[in-house]
């Protein structure tokens, strides 16, 4: 269970507070207007944004003082998810061992993860030689290999076209079914949210609220969300 205990972030004039719990294995869409702090919330959980107060707990363990690399979670950013000078294989292998000195068994694991995301035989290619969708697949293969109990997606598929995005979401769903990980996914698109999440957090007005059931929320959004979604009257 992920617990944000009195979490507070302050960056200049910007402030964000969250006090909530997310059940293990839950799939949660993070919704809200631009600039409200959706990415900041994920960054705070992942350890990139310093906390002004409160704690981040995963299964009872306080992560507040843990370095980003040691937190039991995987995150996909909006961009720069791959090292451009390393092959797809190496980019995935970093999820196992930062030293990249792999045993034969570990190499096989890497190849298997690449095969799982449909990139069999693409291991030696560099990101520049892969399409945008393939690059996302490499990043997902690494997340799959890391098998962390929490997966944070900060709009990594925003630059992809609708069909590719649907492919990626299907792949994420398969990975979650496989690993049983908890998902938090920032998105601007209600359809994306519906495709994968059952619950939602709403980040607006300096607070993160939720989780609440996604369907009813999108059917009858509160004023601040409605204005953003363009569904309000």
């Amino acid at each position: 269970m992920l617990r944000l205990d009195g979490l507070r972030v302050r960056l200049g004039d910007f402030a964000l507070a969250a006090d909530l719990e997310i059940a293990p294995g839950a799939r949660v869409a993070v919704l809200g207007p631009s600039g409200a702090g959706k990415s900041t919330l994920l960054g705070a959980i992942a350890g990139f944004v310093p906390l002004a107060g409160g704690r981040v707990l995963l299964d009872g363990r306080d992560l507040s003082a843990t370095l980003p690399g040691a937190r039991p979670l995987s995150m996909l950013f909006q961009d720069h998810n791959l090292f451009p000078h390393l092959s797809a294989e190496d980019n995935v292998a970093l999820g196992l061992k930062p030293s990249l000195r792999l045993s034969a068994a570990e190499r096989a694991e890497v190849a298997e993860a690449l095969a799982r995301v449909g990139l069999e035989g693409y291991g030696t290619r560099r990101p520049a030689d892969l399409s945008g969708g393939q690059q996302s697949r490499v990043a997902l293969a690494r997340a799959l290999l890391r098998r962390r109990p929490l997966l944070l997606l900060d709009e990594p598929f925003a630059a992809l076209g609708p069909a590719l995005k649907a492919d990626m979401l299907a792949l994420v769903r398969a990975i979650l079914d496989d690993t049983g990980a908890t998902l938090m996914m920032v998105t601007h698109d209600p359809a994306d949210a519906r495709a994968i999440a059952a619950q939602a957090l709403v980040v607006a007005g300096g607070r993160a609220r939720g989780p609440m059931a996604l369907g009813p929320l999108l059917d009858a959004p509160p004023a601040d969300l409605a204005e953003y979604l363009g569904t309000g009257g």
Binding site: F48, L67, G69, S74, F77, H80, G95, P98
Partner: peptide, 10 residues
Amino acid sequence: QGRLADHLGL
């Protein structure tokens, strides 16, 4: 690349 490297514990 720093954020990704941090995230992967490099």
